[in-house]
Amino acid sequence: MSTTPPPAFELAGIRHRYGARTVLSIPHLAIPRGETLGIIGPSGAGKSTLLRLLQGLERPTEGTIDVDGAPMPHPVPLPLSRRITTVFQRPLMLDRSVRDNVLFGLRVRGIKDRAAADPLLERLGLVHLANARARHLSGGEIQRVALARAMAIEPDVLLLDEPAANLDPANVARVEAFIRDAQSRGTTIVLVTHNTHEARRLAHSTVLLIEGGVVETGPTAALFESPAEERTRAFLAGELVY
């Protein structure tokens, strides 16, 4: 018998509702371990909601999420939740220095390694701001600090919500190189973006979500080059599909 490892996440029969409104409906989705899944789609497609379910911050109204082949319990036990982290679309800084923000995830794990922050900040072009108050940074700087803060804990699973949305091209390149590092370390990544180019550059496979439903999923190259669905073709062509 072959011993294929179970996927990092396997979602089955997911329906997630806020009140009467169904915001996410995913019959089946597997995210293989060590791979990067791109999630593309227009605003309001349920992309961020999916990340909240994967992080365990919310429990799906219906359906199951398996992590490494076992159902995700709720509340999520600390050892499991500590293997997963999210860089949120609107990252919020603690009212401390940039360095202390980056070290926060280590601090709560009882690791007091103050030197851990600077190499990460260096790679993201932020080391000169290490002692600055994090709340005083610009939006693009905060986004990069949030990425460094997540990467400092070396998670098994990294959930990224529009990690390069507010960045200039030079910093997009820095952030993407940073994400590639994580990929080469075997981190499972779920990358939410409405930038289809970014998904194309980074994701092994891609899902198109529209209005909470999966329109199409498949290997990134195939999905972009020969979409099976008319709505996928229209979305990639930038036509209004919702």
């Binding site: 982290t85 949120f88 603690l94």
Partner: peptide, 24 residues
Amino acid sequence: PDLRLQVRALGATRWQTGWTILRE
């Protein structure tokens, strides 16, 4: 309230989250 979620997503326990929010 989003800060609480972000603190939790960084691996803080309930107590650590509460303490962090008090500090904020």
